[in-house]
Amino acid sequence: MYLLLSILIGVLFTTGIYMVLRRSIVKLVIGLALLTHAANLLIFVAGRVNTPIPPIIGKGEDSLIPPFADPIPQALILTAIVISFGLTAFAIVLIKRTYKQTGTEDLDDLNTTDKIDKL
């Protein structure tokens, strides 16, 4: 299970970075979305995937008895998913505006701010 998930995370990171390095701005956004997924899964694995038993203190006990599932990583991932959702939505609007304004979807053409004598 760990091995499978680890490989999946690796694949998501590589495809994400590959897409970010493409010249099309649409692929850039897809790459960013893949990267955030990879990070979310990484938290999931780092928080251990061992048992489906919920962390609830039973009757007559005064503390948790292992094994129990750790709820924190899931809370973290939920927060991170919402944030990446917002980021992706913003990025999509941004690339649409950029395309309308500059008329190109090639990242290599968006280099005027790097030129010394421009601006």
Partner: peptide
């Protein structure tokens, strides 16, 4: 908008690294 694309991209990547670091 040109500046914003660069700014957004690099900051999202930085956030992804931050999140991975928190996970580790």
């Amino acid at each position: 908008l040109e500046g914003a694309i660069k700014y957004v991209t690099i900051n999202v990547i930085s956030s992804v690294l931050f999140l991975s670091a928190v996970g580790i």
